[in-house]
């Protein structure tokens, strides 16, 4: 992170957390869609959605980060590409697309209320912290081999 002059990131909210995903792995942002539940795979998988004729597996960001849903959030799906596969990450609200100077982003830090293994870096935007999520680590326990 430190050797990159700027960080391009999509900023979104999951529960009480301000999160970010590196723009390089974000393929698309979709409005919230009703997902078809897949039985037996656990709560962290919302299910399948139809994206223009292609099936997309959507993971539930709130369950993954153990955050409560907030009523005022509209909901959105951030399509990320991990290991050549595309997944949807269900989030509360997409907030912004950001270019942050590298010095505004610090390396991984301990933050209350979130598993440090899921934090890639921490940044500051408008005086508030945001967490750059390690999407690989976030989806690894869920996705198929």
């Amino acid at each position: 992170m430190a050797d990159s002059p700027t960080l391009h990131a999509v900023i979104f909210r999951i529960g009480a957390l301000n999160c970010a995903a590196p723009a390089g792995i974000v393929r698309e942002i979709l409005p919230r869609l009703d997902a078809t539940r897949i039985p037996g795979v656990g709560q962290a998988v919302e299910g399948l959605v139809n994206v223009r004729g292609t099936l997309l597996t959507v993971l539930d960001g709130h369950v993954l980060l153990q955050q409560p849903r907030r009523e005022e959030d509209e909901g959105a799906i951030i399509v990320v590409e991990v290991g050549g596969r595309r997944y949807g990450l269900g989030v509360g609200q997409v907030v912004d697309f950001l270019e942050v100077p590298a010095h505004a982003v610090a390396e991984r830090a301990e933050l209350p209320g979130i598993d440090p293994r899921l934090v890639k870096a921490v940044g500051i935007r408008d005086g508030a912290h945001f967490i750059v999520l390690d999407i690989d680590a976030l989806v690894a326990p869920i996705i198929g081999s």
Partner: peptide
């Protein structure tokens, strides 16, 4: 039948 990336533990 459409392909999709199956999550772990799919029955």
């Amino acid at each position: 039948v459409a392909p999709f990336d199956a999550p772990r533990g799919m029955p």
